[in-house]
Design a protein around this nucleic acid. Structure first.
Lengths: 227, 227
DNA sequence: AAAAAAATCAAACAGTTGTATAAAAAACTC
DNA sequence: GAGTTTTTTATACAACTGTTTGATTTTTTT
């Protein structure tokens, strides 16, 4: 698995293009789309202002390209697990215990990914999109976020024996999902609350453990007893 | 209890000031601090550009004042409940079952508030602050968010018998908190998933019920059994 | 090495930004 | 109602915005 943000060939032009995408991601994340200027993006990439028009046409297309890259990266992170789960769901060979394990595994992966370097910039861009979605975001949502949410619901339904199409399973899954993303969405709050300068892998491990426990308690509590 | 956003006297100047604060909250929420121009804020309030300098000195002070108003509003929503809980915590007269009930009550209140109108604009501003905190956010965090988060943690600790100062209780509380705010932070996602045009009180009720269940399952699961 | 293509660059463009200024209007006080 | 304070207004300012242009440099191809 590659899992590289904005992969490119070693051509001169391709490299410059990639450099622009990387610094664009960073600046868009730091300062938002409208407030990140093409001049500072170009400068951070060691390029001239005109380079953006040359490679992407305009600022908006550059942003769309950044979102595309984010989507590809996110899919590459969970793609393998997701594909396998979809297969087992289709074949009906997913038992409740495995489903619960899979749920925890996905949550752990998401959490772990969110602590690392690359995702930090992705996170900022995605949070801004949540509060005011752009046109380009629709694509990211449809191709990446929604399919994942849908898969999570179906896996959760298997874990608890609920109806995967019913509103209860959807709401429950969304609540569980919230337990994970609150650590990135309200990251500033938890960082200050824990009194640390920066959230590191050791925090991700602890948080992952807590979420595992909560998922177990909720899933097992909702499953009719069978002793 | 008043619970009004940016309360003011009926003086001419005070009213103009309030109008500016209201449209500032709206524009800052819609477009972010840097991209919301003082001109459009003034125009939306039926005022001239210079009014902002006249009443607030500059744009940044206006923003700080908006955040102050948000803090006051948030505190007014949960203030009574919070005060009572703090008293009972100090007096040691809060038993685990009552603590758990209080937790659910607070979550219900937050959820209910978030379906209504005013909170929508507040929500946008706060989400933006989470992804890139401004200096003014320090105040909001110190006077409003942190005390509430702290209270929730202590109540949760009573409900489960955990150490209220330890990181585990903090992380657990934050995770529970996430189950609530995910329905506002990712409100568009859940709306589409449920296939409804608008989230109404009936959805708030169902979501509240689900969160109640989850809180019960987690709290009871963490409390050592007592036959 | 010559020719062609690709990449980089500085300068200029029309708009918009936050803020400052000073005059005009309105509201209030006596 | 005159005098004072408060509020509103239009205008000016320098700094910055995204984009366009045309020339120059670098790289690739022949």
């Amino acid at each position: 698995m590659t899992r590289e943000l904005f992969p490119s060939s070693p051509n001169k032009g391709e490299q410059a293009r990639r450099g622009l995408l990387l610094s664009a991601l960073e600046k868009f994340g730091q300062r938002g789309y409208e407030n990140a200027s093409v001049r500072e993006i170009a400068e951070a990439a060691g390029q001239n202002v005109g380079a953006i028009a040359y490679y992407f046409g305009n600022k908006e297309s550059l942003y769309a390209e950044v979102l595309k890259g984010i989507g590809a990266y996110l899919r590459s992170v969970l793609g393998e697990t997701a594909d396998e789960l979809r297969e087992r769901l289709a074949g009906g060979s997913l038992d409740p215990d495995s489903a619960r394990s899979a749920l925890k595994h996905i949550f752990r992966t998401m959490l772990g990914e969110q602590i690392e370097g690359d995702f930090d910039k992705i996170r900022s861009v995605m949070m801004r999109e949540q509060s005011s979605p752009s046109e380009s975001f629709d694509l990211l949502y449809r191709d990446t976020i929604r399919p994942l949410h849908d898969l999570l619901t179906r896996v959760f339904a298997v874990a608890t024996g609920e109806d995967p199409e019913g509103p209860l399973a959807i709401v429950r899954t969304h609540a569980l999902f919230g337990q994970v993303i609150v650590f990135t969405m309200a990251r500033e709050t938890i960082r200050r609350r824990l009194g640390v300068r920066k959230l590191g892998p050791e925090h991700a491990a602890m948080i992952g453990g807590v979420i595992d426990e909560h998922v177990d308690l909720i899933c097992r509590g909702l499953t009719p007893k069978k002793p």
